[in-house]
Design a protein around this nucleic acid. Structure first.
Lengths: 333, 333
DNA sequence: TTGAAAGCGCTAACAG
DNA sequence: CTGTTAGCGCTTTCAA
């Protein structure tokens, strides 16, 4: 009749020990499979049985406090909307990390305040991955929080995602594809959303690089409003000067196509359009959108493995190689 | 020259106390703004200054171990791709929770293994929100982990998101809109992706409810493959029997439109189509897609407030009322 | 083979 | 007004 008044007290290893008639040490040994301990099979089973029966769960804070290491990895995401690409990446990364005993969580951070410091002190992650390089201050706060595995590393380099192959490579691949089709005057359609500005610039730089490598003039850079009429205006402004465009992503490409339709222009005849990300809507567009897709799951796995390596004390090797990205050829380019 | 060999030791409150020539207790009091303590302003400033200079950060595990409460909230997300809607929801929820001192992280969980139990014991969250009701086992594991604020609550009810207004309301609103336009024979286009099956069913049930309420026959239920040709097949199978369709979401609606185009059919003349979620691509479709949009930010705030209330010991009141969702009328219906 | 005990960093009751 | 102290639950040496 008398139900427990408050929330029932947590089941600790002491409870298990008492119930099993053993000491906490013994319990801890079997629960952690501590090597170099000769525990009789009978005792072992006894502990396991009692633990299960009592519903014992190790208590993370105590464990972390004692061992100095937590089992949490954090991916810090920017506040712009994430799509399938990121979802796949996270899924695979979580899987790889999980196999190594780490639990992956994500945290979206707009980058304004001191939010990240709060994150470290609320979570004490063992490893952190960010979509953009961390500032020296952020890096310092992580060091203080004792986080040893951080990606990307401090030196801006190829590891810097906003300039890495992962980002620039997309633009480069778009431009190379278009150039391969015989186009010589390109444009880059940049995203309207200010949060996407840096990414947009990164991808456009990749495209510019490809043009330079091919001895072509630099692409025209235009930011593309996400309204059909405004998009049409931008398209009109390109008249004759460009024959193909690298859109920041598929959403932008779709806006472009809509603007062109308004003007009575068709892709790829009047203007070739290539997108990025291969969202579900891309294949259903008219014309079906040619786009760049990424093996984001594979990238997630690589990130996870790099993080794990860093945890082991190695220096994180993170390479976003061309093999993780490819063109999906449809009709628009 | 000699750089510190290992990772420099963590700065603890003892360090601050020593440096400031005070005791840890005093330091703790000022750092936590403990009430009912009369600390001279001078001492207070001294502590703050030293703490800042040394770069002191409280250590979560110790704090949590001692106080029995963590500052972490977790949103458990299903493994299907999340879009803008969820991003907005999470952003706002994080903001509201942040103001209350809680840090929000998300974790994607496919629902297969014991992943959630691992999550609790790696994180010790104070509050948890899930997109779907938790199973009794999961609920039990949370209880054991001492998590007091959980949403949705145990009793399947309106709070059960897969049957709540949040989900069913979408389908209901789609159908009501279509019925309001004079349609009497509806179909529901369900998602192909098995991960989306439950959600799809929920939305379709809402639509069926609306038909029943209007004295109309139940809608035809068809799952729609995400391939133009296959989608066309489904559309063809509806011939004459349906004049309007509620698509699970905008991606499905776009596939539908593509299939119709193949058949030489146009919306809304031959078949009216309404989507859900209002993705960016919706407005650029031909014809522009009429869809149902949600005030997901507002919902995020409500979830956060309900969680906070639960933490205070109140019973979580979570209502997804009609005011969080509305039709965006464009051309396809 | 198992038990006793120390201590991780922090908070809060209790002394002084 | 400030310092001393007792644990929170866990791991892990060290002894028995």
């Amino acid at each position: 009749m008398s139900d427990n008044k408050k929330t029932t007290r947590r089941v600790t290893s002491v409870d298990v020990a008492r119930e099993a008639g053993l000491s906490r040490a013994t319990v801890s040994f079997v629960l952690n499979n501590t090597p170099n301990q000769s525990i009789p099979q009978a005792t072992r089973e006894r502990v396991l049985e009692v633990a299960a029966r009592l519903g014992y769960t190790p208590y993370a804070p105590a464990r972390t406090l004692r061992s100095g290491r937590s089992d949490v990895a954090v991916f810090v995401l920017p506040d712009w909307p994430q799509g399938h690409t990121m979802a796949d990446l996270i899924d695979r990364a979580a899987q790889v990390l999980g196999e190594a005993g780490l639990t992956l969580v994500t945290h979206v951070h707009a980058g304004e305040d001191d939010g990240l410091a709060r994150l470290w002190s609320a979570l004490t992650p063992a490893a952190v991955f960010g979509m953009r390089p961390f500032t020296p201050q952020e890096r310092e706060s992580m060091r203080r929080a004792g986080i040893s595995a951080v990606l990307p590393p401090s030196q801006p380099s190829d590891h810097d995602l906003s300039t890495s192959f992962w980002i620039r490579g997309i633009g480069r691949l778009q431009a190379e594809y278009l150039i391969g089709k015989g186009h010589t005057r390109l444009a880059c359609a940049l995203p309207d959303d200010p949060r996407l500005a840096a990414l947009g610039r990164g991808r456009a730089e990749g495209a510019a690089q490809a043009c330079a490598d091919a001895g072509l003039p630099a692409p025209v850079m235009s930011t593309l409003p996400m309204e059909t009429a405004d998009a049409a205006g931008v398209v009109a402004s390109w008249r004759d000067a460009v024959t193909a465009v690298c859109a920041y992503n598929d959403d932008v490409a779709l806006a472009l196509l809509a603007g062109m339709r308004t003007l009575g222009l068709a892709a790829p005849g009047d203007l070739a359009v290539i997108g990025a990300d291969d969202i579900p809507a891309a294949r259903f567009a008219v014309p079906a959108l040619t786009t760049v897709a990424q093996e984001s799951g594979e990238m997630g796995a690589r990130i996870a493995r790099a993080l794990l390596a860093a945890l082991e004390g190695g220096s994180p090797e993170l390479d976003f190689l061309p093999d993780t990205v490819h063109v999906v050829e449809r009709e628009s380019a």
